[in-house]
Write a protein that binds this DNA or RNA. Structure first.
Lengths: 136, 136
DNA sequence: TTATTATCCTATCGATTTAATAGAGTAAGC
DNA sequence: GCTTACTCTATTAAATCGATAGGATAATAA
């Protein structure tokens, strides 16, 4: 299940991408337009900034803005920042790999085999979409 | 993230599918072979039985067994029973659809659009795999 | 310099879910 | 009728999630 954090983050990013210019937009403005709890959104935008997707400006006229053009922001990056690993099990994760402690042999593990395919198919989708593709 | 319930369930099913005959196998036997908590596995096998994937026999010589041939058990069915919806958001779920209360228009929702693709790609994988494909 | 604005950051909290465990009940076989 | 092994309900500890509160910090404008 997609977390609300990811859902809200995607909506916020799409909103920013749909803006005319690249002027900073206030948290409150985004929260209002997208029906998101202001405070919760605040923490989400913060992680997006720390990961280098968003920039921010303090004080009057401040807010958040996209650092790059939407078409240059692949969904793989966004999803990993917001939701974490794309893989459903750590043992098939490219960026967050971890060995299963209960599984003696990865190569002959049925779960591993199946989840590898699922990961690849999801990855394919995220690779083929940039933030620009999410703007209606 | 895949729940342990699903992971253990898949391992148990694969184990049953790899058996020579279709004789009942005891919970303890499966738990031991696959490194799963016996009691936890018990509840998982119970839901698999209730959903019509497994059969069971009580008393001496009892245990769990596959009702159908592994090749006739699609992963779509197994995953929905164990993990629930294949979709990551209820608003793109085929079998567990629910409207988002925060989203005014589904058709123009970026999350909806993206998650539809992810659901389709995952579905494709599950459709192309039966339990037989999971046996090494 | 001071007031205002808006992000930054940490801490907390309630609710839900997850993984695991315990124990009494029930049915099948010998 | 005794043993075996599934059936079912209930409980629990831990983790995660979504949300909220409040003060710190920095930028702008007067």
């Amino acid at each position: 299940m997609l977390s609300k954090k990811t859902k809200y983050g995607l909506k916020a990013l799409t909103f920013l991408a749909s803006q005319k210019g690249r002027q900073p937009v206030q948290i409150s403005e985004i929260a209002k337009q997208e029906n998101i709890s202001r405070k919760f959104l605040e923490s989400i935008l913060l992680t997006l900034r720390k990961s280098g997707i968003l920039g921010s400006k303090k004080g009057k006229g401040g807010g958040y803005y996209l650092i790059k053009e939407p078409k240059d922001i692949p969904m793989t990056v966004v999803m990993r920042v917001l939701e974490g690993p794309i893989a459903m099990v750590p043992c098939v994760s490219l960026n967050f790999y971890e060995k299963c402690d209960d599984c003696p042999d990865e190569a002959s593990c049925s779960v591993h085999m199946l989840m590898l395919q699922v990961r690849d198919s999801a990855l394919e989708v995220y690779k083929n979409n940039t933030l620009a593709d999410l703007v209606p």
